[in-house]
């Protein structure tokens, strides 16, 4: 294309985009004036007036909307971080199991991945909440050798002395099981990227499957796994917003309540967008750190 034609084409696109944007903004202004709402963020300092079932820092309904949103953000962060760890555990185990020498184990892992990935996450979360966790007995099992480690009841879960709410547990387990299946596929792809000869080599050296996997195969598979893994982590963070379905007070649930109360949809959406950009930055940053270390580790003689 000649440079003049390129210029005209781009100018045309900009013109169309600006016109479209202008019409939309014009409609928005008309609608906002009609409903008597201007864009403003002053409502953030007003008292929220709603209670939160869970808050990592002290919170009362008389606290501001901004504080309530921060609690939601922290709750999201809490469940995302815990689910990241648990999902990685599930995913790596299932992914490695799909390449195990034991045919039954291979089959079991394939069954897990095939089943979980074909059922909507929302349905799974509802299952974990209403059936698995609310279906627990109402009094904790105080007898038995496990009772000091894990206490289960439909009032809440106590893991090694740390109390967890039923909502948090349901979201955590649901998210981890779902993302674990996706991560298993990533891990399997990464393992397949390691040449067959490497598997045969460690087996012929007499290393056990576990040791060979840890010392020979996984280090070589990691560079292929990490990009897929970070995109699954980002998905997990985004999927955590479905926590609203089981009543966990995550960022999206708090935003939803805030918007319903104040009618500040656009401002609320902007804040939510910013928060998720922040989550994404955090995850991407962390993954890049790991990636850096992995690549550096490989360069060692």
């Amino acid at each position: 294309m000649t440079s003049r034609r390129r210029w005209w084409l781009q100018a045309l696109v900009v013109l169309i985009a600006l016109t479209l944007l202008g019409v939309l903004v014009n409609n928005l202004t008309v609608n906002l004036i009609r409903t008597g709402l201007g864009l403003s963020f002053r409502w953030l300092v007003r008292p929220a007036g709603f209670a939160l079932a869970e808050h990592p820092l002290p919170y009362a309904p008389s606290d501001s909307y901004a504080w309530a949103l921060l609690m939601g953000w922290l709750n999201s962060l809490k469940v995302i971080l815990a689910a990241l760890i648990l999902a990685t555990l599930f995913g790596v185990s299932a992914g490695a199991a799909r390449r195990s020498v034991n045919p039954l184990l291979r089959w079991l892992a394939a069954f897990y991945v095939g089943l979980i990935r074909q059922i909507p996450l929302l349905l799974q979360l509802l299952f974990w909440y209403f059936v698995a966790f609310l279906g627990l007995p109402s009094a904790p099992n105080s007898t038995g050798p496990l009772s000091s480690l894990l206490r289960l009841s439909n009032q809440g879960i106590e893991l090694v002395g740390v109390p967890l709410s039923v909502e948090f547990s349901a979201v955590l387990v649901g998210l981890s099981v779902f993302s674990g299946a996706a991560i298993a596929e990533v891990v399997r792809g990464g393992l397949d990227a390691v040449p067959r000869g490497q598997w045969e080599a460690f087996r012929s050296l007499g290393l056990t499957e576990g040791l060979g996997l840890r010392r020979v195969i996984l280090p070589q598979a990691l560079p292929a796994i990490l990009p897929g893994l970070s995109s699954q982590y980002l998905n997990l963070a985004k999927n955590s917003t479905l926590a609203i379905a089981v009543g966990y007070a995550d960022l999206y649930a708090v935003s939803d309540t805030t918007i319903t109360q104040t009618g500040r949809a656009i401002e609320g959406f902007l804040l939510l967008l910013l928060s998720f950009l922040l989550f994404n930055l955090l995850i991407n940053g962390g993954m890049q750190l790991i990636n850096h270390r992995v690549v550096k580790g490989r360069q060692r003689p």
Binding site: Y252, I259, A265, I266, F269, L272, L273, F276
Partner: peptide, 14 residues
């Protein structure tokens, strides 16, 4: 970058 539920919610609202 945004979760789908937010897009859907604001689709209904915005």
């Amino acid at each position: 970058a945004v979760p789908l539920i937010a897009v859907l919610f604001f689709g209904q609202l915005l």
